[in-house]
């Protein structure tokens, strides 16, 4: 359906925006390495089914490979910045202070409690859903502490939030046309959207009222 396609495309757009900008400008200003590392973990644990070779469609398989590849490439580019622009890298690391163990640990426990089947594949899949829902927190934490967001960060988070928002009408659509209600995805998806709404609210206020950028 249209919501699903548009959602996936904005997800793809968010990563392309990030990749292209970092590649072109060699700037990682305002980007959280921790959030990016969490996304690599999210994609690798979610798309483990690629290894079973029970592929659903060309679209599905290709997108999964692109998401894994692009997220790893982002990390590579950030690491390249380490040698190229040591000062900017150090500055980024000094501000990227969120403790990700407080996200990974609880997500692992939630995956053990909420899953469809107690198998490695299903546990990893559930873990990836929980982790994705909170993976942006180090990034938002960084923004709230610096009090300002660059164009790159803003566009990136905007595209990511759009992807999340579009998945909601997609689920409603699928519920009515296919009778499908996948509770884990819906719940973690709503949780993730709620986190983004905070960003959107502040962004809206900043754009409309021209006030300084701040997150509660």
């Amino acid at each position: 359906n249209i919501f699903r396609i548009l959602g996936d495309l904005s997800h793809l757009a968010s990563i392309v925006i990030l990749l292209r900008t970092v590649q072109k400008t060699r700037q990682v200003d305002g980007i959280s390495l921790k959030t990016q590392l969490l996304y690599v973990l999210v994609f690798c644990t979610r798309y483990l089914d690629l290894l079973t070779f029970r592929w659903k469609s060309v679209y599905n398989t290709l997108m999964k490979m692109v998401f894994i590849g692009a997220s790893v490439r982002v990390i590579q580019l950030i690491q390249e910045c380490k040698t190229r622009n040591a000062v900017a890298y150090k500055d980024m690391m000094a501000r990227d202070t969120f403790q990700i163990k407080y996200l990974v640990g609880p997500c692992a426990i939630l995956a053990l409690v909420f899953n469809y089947k107690f198998t490695v594949l299903e546990l990893c899949w559930s873990f990836s859903l929980w982790l994705e829902s909170v993976a942006i927190l180090p990034q938002l934490f960084m923004l709230s502490r610096s009090g300002k967001a660059g164009t790159l960060t803003t566009h990136y988070i905007f595209a990511l939030g759009l992807y999340r928002a579009l998945y909601i009408p997609n689920w409603i659509w699928r519920y009515y046309t296919e009778g499908r209600l996948e509770k884990l995805s819906v719940f973690t998806g709503l949780l993730q959207t709620a986190l983004y709404s905070d960003f959107f609210y502040i962004y809206y206020k900043k754009v409309i009222k021209g006030a300084g950028f701040e997150l509660p």
């Binding site: 979610r46 599905n60 996948e182």
Partner: peptide
């Protein structure tokens, strides 16, 4: 139940 295990979303 089996349909839910398909995980066809990204």
């Amino acid at each position: 139940e089996d349909k839910l295990l398909e995980h066809d979303e990204l």
